[in-house]
Design a protein around this nucleic acid. Structure first.
Lengths: 243, 243
DNA sequence: ACCTGAACACCGTTCAAGT
DNA sequence: ACCTGAACACCGTTCAAGT
């Protein structure tokens, strides 16, 4: 159970490695200096010599994880689709490291982490005809949407079963004018589908103004938004070979 | 400093009240049973008699805060604008109780908390011509966007100064084809403006498909998305009288 | 240069004992 | 019915002492 037995020398590298392991398995809250020491087979205080303290240990962990995130490779034939594909790729990266988003945010490393995605998005916004501050707004809107969506998703997964639950709530209430709507809201939510759908809508909305006016790709954009309900098809599995 | 001096009887009510006070001032992490006891002028263990334990104390706190959130009163002349106004009102509610979102999520009370907003949104989506599952998707997309945005905002505010900072990052990098875009991304982000703008785009995108096809209000929707940069004007201060 | 145990100041929670 | 102190099992961190 305790992992390493014949310990000769402790090492900043192995401290980080086993710490990363603990975080990956049980989350950052479960990473206590004492448990880590037990796992390493050393005294608690030895860890301090190599990594300073718990806080800088987590810093280093985050830094290293961010460093070897895969490249983001946009896919699709139009800027709108390519921007959406960047959003999906970003979400996939984040979900591959379940505790990363929260840790990164707490540590104020968000900007560095999202720079590759930001640049990819900026490129597509430019290609779609957005310029300057307007393009910057679009980039940031998508970025915040993705991070926010992943945070909400993660919380929803971690949370104990929703206490009243949309189910009962919507069943009990007067279903209003649209019983089909009430039934749909009572069904459990498919996060992946909702993400794909909302990103598409957001990008469409962001490009819409400039798109129709400036670049004449309004029809393409509208088509991208119109096939909504089909959800996850070919372009959901496309990603860079890096990850 | 210790607040109450002449303490006759402890009371679940006053325990909750002072606990709420501590959370409001220093966040939920700062609410320790021992500090709370000190503030109350009682033994730590007395608290346990009234509220069980720390976890159910926080549960009760959240429950009570959610209970007296104000009504959500949509404003605006079109469904798109009214839906966006619901999103803004929801954001305002959440920001009025800075620690609420995270606590609510951790406790799995999200559904109950957002039911009023959800119903208001559902109403507007129906008015905009969306039906059934499609309307449900739109409602949830907006809901997740708002919660996610607020979570990101909160984290950004709490976080220590972003370490590398978009500033330096974007200045250092090859600014690509659009130096104005790079400059805009180097500027600090105006969360309120970005929120207004992205919600508008999202709603436009969500209604776009059904709106143009079914209800013939595509021009109105497009106009709503096109006046983008002006941001927070009349309808930003509108809310129910409840809060 | 690296590792150790003892010690300090914190936590939440339980429990027998008081009134 | 309500409040108490002592005690337990945890934390992160410091520090003098070892090799």
């Amino acid at each position: 159970m305790k992992g390493k037995e014949t310990r000769t020398r402790l090492d900043r590298e192995t401290v980080l490695a086993t710490a990363a392991d603990l975080v990956k398995q049980h989350g950052p809250a479960a990473l206590t200096m004492r448990k880590l020491a037990a796992e390493l087979g050393t005294a608690v205080t030895s860890i301090y010599w190599h990594v300073g303290n718990r806080e800088s240990l987590l810093d280093a962990l985050v830094e290293r994880t961010v460093a070897d995130l895969g490249e983001i490779q946009p896919t699709g034939r139009t800027p709108a689709r390519r921007a959406a594909s960047v959003a999906r790729a970003l979400r996939r990266q984040l979900r591959a490291h379940p505790h990363l988003v929260a840790m990164v945010h707490e540590r104020g490393l968000t900007d560095r982490m999202f720079l590759p995605a930001q640049q990819a998005l900026a490129h597509e916004m430019y290609a779609a005809g957005l310029r300057g501050a307007r393009a910057a707004d679009a980039v940031r809107a998508v970025q915040v949407h993705v991070v926010g969506h992943v945070l909400v998703e993660r919380n929803r997964e971690r949370a104990p079963v929703q206490r009243p639950g949309e189910h009962q709530l919507w069943e009990a209430r007067t279903a209003g004018q649209d019983p089909a709507l009430a039934r749909a809201l009572a069904r459990p939510l498919d996060a992946e589908r909702l993400f794909t759908l909302s990103v598409r809508a957001l990008v469409t909305g962001l490009l819409g103004a400039a798109g129709e006016v400036a670049a004449g790709l309004g029809d393409e954009v509208a088509a991208g938004g119109a096939d909504g309900a089909t959800g996850t098809d070919e372009n959901a599995t496309a990603s860079g070979p890096g990850n």
